[in-house]
């Protein structure tokens, strides 16, 4: 899969994003890492030019509650409804419902075993192939539950 990994928020700490990128690479994916300090519009632009199938958003600094919805909104406006979006980093429990409601299909907290991410991606591909909703602009109702 071609996956864009984006780090949102103004802090320059992108270790988390790099760890995820490395793990996805080792699992055979092509990862396009955006680097730090990209705006939501720039991130969407990268997704278009790179023809990515999935977007992983890494966030630390509490920017998730504005930036993630913003990204998802632009994605839908650009008609990238079938893009699979997942998020990782520090996202408090109370904010998660709102994030899922934007079309994000999985949230991975700090210290998540990377295998869960692979399982999520496999499940997503399966859903996509059988015509079930999994994209950011498609019907809500399903998201990954990480044990």
């Amino acid at each position: 899969m071609r996956i864009v990994v984006a780090k949102v928020g103004l802090d320059g700490h992108d270790r988390g994003a790099k760890v995820i990128s490395r793990a996805l690479r080792n699992a055979g994916h092509e990862v396009i890492y955006t680097g730090i300090r990209k705006t939501p519009h720039e991130i969407v632009r990268i997704i278009i030019d790179e023809d990515a199938e999935a977007l992983g958003i890494s966030t630390l600094s509490g920017a998730h509650d504005t930036l993630i919805p913003k990204i998802c909104e632009i994605l839908r406006n650009e008609d990238l409804n079938d893009l699979i979006v997942f998020a990782g980093g520090i996202i408090p429990e109370r904010d998660r419902e709102a994030i899922y409601n934007c079309g994000v299909r999985a949230i991975f907290g700090p210290g998540t075993n990377t295998n869960s991410i692979f399982d999520f991606l496999n499940e997503s591909i399966k859903r996509k192939e059988s015509g079930d909703f999994v994209g950011v602009g498609e019907n809500l109702g399903w998201h990954w539950i990480d044990e």
């Binding site: 990128s21 690479r25 080792n26 699992a27 396009i32 680097g35 720039e42 632009r45």
Partner: peptide, 18 residues
């Protein structure tokens, strides 16, 4: 080994995404 890749050249090309 995995066939995967990290494609990171966007990192340094400032202004390349606008």
């Amino acid at each position: 080994v995995s066939g995967g890749a990290i494609l990171g050249d966007r990192l340094r090309m400032s202004n390349s995404d606008i």
